[in-house]
């Protein structure tokens, strides 16, 4: 049932990212929404199997985008591993930790982007506007990703309750 939740969540975010975000003008500084998903599994799950889920997310995004092959897989896996390891050092509920790693995750993805584009174009070609744009995305990520993580967490709790109720009813347990 958990798998179903993560499937719906990732499908929802992929579709919003590819159909709605590019259409809405004020969302042009929006970061990659799938980072929310990656951060959620790295912060709130402890099973190592989720790395496969992160790889699947990266693969899907690589297929749907014109980015160089492997860009999203690499970004998501490294974000996942980095946050997963940091979680053991700093408490995941720390109020400053989540905004900082949110901004860090967006910056990390930009780092991979700069690397792939440098290799692709054989040299530096980023304009000041590009750097400003990246900065804006990091700032938006700092404020927005923690809020979205709270929303996803609420949805997950709601989903768990519903599933518990359904499975409880099936087993004849009255709550």
């Amino acid at each position: 049932m958990n798998a179903l939740f993560y499937l719906f969540l990732s499908l929802f975010l992929v579709i919003v990212q590819t159909t709605l975000v590019p259409e809405i003008a004020f969302l042009n500084c929006c970061f990659d929404l799938l980072i929310v998903n990656v951060l959620y599994v790295s912060l709130f799950t402890s099973h190592g199997i989720f790395i496969l889920y992160v790889v699947a997310l990266g693969w899907t995004m690589d297929c749907l985008s014109g980015v160089p092959s492997g860009f999203y897989i690499s970004s998501y896996v490294w974000i996942y591993l980095f946050v997963f390891m940091l979680r053991h050092v700093i408490h995941a509920g720390n109020f400053i930790f989540i905004p900082v790693i949110s901004a860090g995750a967006v910056a990390m993805e930009h780092g991979f982007l700069i690397f792939t584009l440098l290799v692709k174009q054989d040299g530096w070609f980023f304009s000041t506007a590009d750097i400003v744009f990246m900065g804006k995305q990091i700032v938006v990520g700092f404020f927005m990703i923690p809020l979205l993580l709270v929303v996803v967490n609420k949805c997950k709790k709601g989903w768990d309750k519903k599933i518990q109720r359904v499975t409880g009813r099936k087993m004849g347990i009255r709550g």
């Binding site: 590819t18 159909t19 990659d32 749907l64 985008s65």
Partner: peptide
Amino acid sequence: IARDPSPWF
């Protein structure tokens, strides 16, 4: 039916 998820491409 859809646009690129990355603003860089």
